[in-house]
Write a protein that binds this DNA or RNA. Sequence first.
DNA 1: GTCTATAAGGCGATAGAC
DNA 2: GTCTATCGCCTTATAGAC
Lengths: 188, 188
Amino acid sequence: MKTQSVREQLLEHTLVLIRRRGFNGFSYRDLAELVGVKTSSIHYYFPAKEDLVQEAVKEYSARLAERIRSIDTSLPVTEQAAIYLAPFRASCGSDQICLCGMLSTETLCLPESVHKMLQGFFLLNEQWLAGLLERAQPHRSTPFPVPPARLAQVVFGSLQSGLIAARLFGTSDRVEAAADTLMAAVAG
Amino acid sequence: MKTQSVREQLLEHTLVLIRRRGFNGFSYRDLAELVGVKTSSIHYYFPAKEDLVQEAVKEYSARLAERIRSIDTSLPVTEQAAIYLAPFRASCGSDQICLCGMLSTETLCLPESVHKMLQGFFLLNEQWLAGLLERAQPHRSTPFPVPPARLAQVVFGSLQSGLIAARLFGTSDRVEAAADTLMAAVAG
DNA sequence: GTCTATAAGGCGATAGAC
DNA sequence: GTCTATCGCCTTATAGAC
């Protein structure tokens, strides 16, 4: 474990708090106690709570963008899909869902600047999945029942709600159902 | 518009508030101002906020259960699907998502009794959809790529997240993608 | 049943010492 | 940078008059 600056620690714990309880579900006091500083120190780095959530989304999105970017598109499509699915499966046992999936339910409580970043996160995932399905299409015996771009939205949406349901039910069934749907689509 | 008791008005406005902003996103003050009473009057009907959310989930679930129960299973399967999908499409233009979809993201902030009811809501939908798919199966030219019960989970999950995305993006695209997937599955 | 009044504490945020 | 101290407001909840 590398040594982190106070700012890095604040951001890291914020990611966890949002993924657990959402923007409206944690306070500066909660965060301060986790890091071991006073709430006024948080305001030094993040003047308002909106600044904090904005930086959290930026950081979370950047990590996922890098992860997706690093998937070698010349690999077998089933292997690409498996790499994409890994973080969803990993988060299943934890009590954390996707940060952007959580914040997207709190749209009406968040500033426009955050909406834009959440939309970008959704589109990045959907477009990458659509690309994967298109790369898989030539190898399929039958055409898709719905166009790749729409199937991508269905797969991503069911993965997101699968994470939410995993925490509610204590089972990864619904994430696996979404994963199976993707695998069946790319395997043809 | 029928005359409602104060209790009924409180419950009705609570449904809207939760569907808009979630359990952590509204206060007794918000609710009191909407109904035109003082916050202490809310406590007369619902002693604690947990009682309020519990009654809200109970009411919302009862309405959906009645709606699903009333779908004539001897109708053509595509017609049954269209009836099931109608409320999802209706909620698309509004700023309200599914109450149980919203609360399921706040699992860690809610009591066990509410978890049970949310699970029941999910299972009711998934099981009805699975039954629909099974009724459609004999008419299909090819078997399902994934079993009906899993496809039902995928469809329901993508409808739920489709509502969330509809509010974030201002478009019903993702709900329609989920609806198309269901229709393609039952139409074979 | 509904109100006034209030308790007891949480909230985000700021000023200013060090 | 981090702290102490504090502001002004909001929160859920209760006691008791009417």
